[in-house]
Design a protein around this nucleic acid. Structure first.
Lengths: 142, 142
DNA sequence: GCATTTGTAGCAGTTAGAGTTACAGAGAAA
DNA sequence: TTTCTCTGTAACTCTAACTGCTACAAATGC
């Protein structure tokens, strides 16, 4: 499966930023906690920046920080920021239009897909970054 | 993203089998409707067979058919049969254990992940293959 | 000016999946 | 029994996507 670990990495990074409050955190520092390369983190921060979740600053004493309070950011926003946003993909190649099923299956699946995606967003939106941060700090997983 | 179109293909194939009732359908026929290769379909049918959703027969007049009535098969089962079953992947490489966040984030994310996956399964289980088949036949997407 | 840090381009390595060919084995029908 | 038809599966290539890395321009504080 498309092991999309971008979301996990994003939550991890944002939790680090939540811990540092208004202080800028360098991509190097984030990268070593996530255990990856600083460039990978900066690419991710670029996406989070486009979604208005973080603010970055170049230059000496630069780095990134949250654009909003941790309790004003929910996981659905994060998911949306880093994901194409579909649980499952529709047909890679269009099915045969000569077949009654091939002709209509995509519309039906698309409809179901949207419903599931809405459900995911709804569930994720119940968690704020603040909630996650607190769970992590308390070392409890629920 | 991990464009996992296996689920779409599986529903497509199973809908074709639902249409053919107890008659065996050849992988060639399924492949041409899905617009892919027969071997790809047979690999998928192997997974569906392991999940007891279809029965296949080798030899002349062989092929595949549903193992159960279409109204006794729901989409959650199909999803489970072809998917690793996680919305998002956890960290590819374990995060730094020297960081309080790195140390606990995986447990927290794992917990959230399981909750979301349960939500997806719950929503998918509301649709039977029969429902999908009828929607496709009627050419309506809801 | 100088040191530091981001943003981003460009490249190599890895992985997952799709598509293809090939062939052994099962099973119906003559 | 032989033959014809299918499935199951292995092996290979191609492609797309992601990761990791180096490099460097531009921004910014001192």
């Amino acid at each position: 499966m498309a092991a999309n670990s971008q979301f996990s990495m994003a939550v991890h990074v944002l939790a680090m930023l939540a811990r540092s409050k208004d202080e800028n955190v360098k991509s190097d520092c984030l990268a070593s906690s996530v255990n990856t390369n600083a460039v990978v983190v900066r690419r991710l921060l670029g996406q989070l920046n486009q979604a208005s979740l973080v603010v970055s600053q170049t230059g000496a004493n630069g780095g990134s920080r949250l654009a909003r309070c941790p309790n004003e950011i929910n996981l659905a926003e994060i998911y949306k920021a880093v994901n194409c946003g579909e649980v499952f993909a529709l047909h890679a190649k269009a099915p045969s239009q000569d077949c009654s099923i091939g002709k209509n299956i995509e519309a039906v699946l698309g409809c179901i897909q949207r419903e599931i995606d809405k459900g995911i967003a709804e569930k994720l939106s119940r968690y704020t970054l603040q909630n996650v941060f607190e769970m992590v700090e308390q070392g409890k997983a629920s």
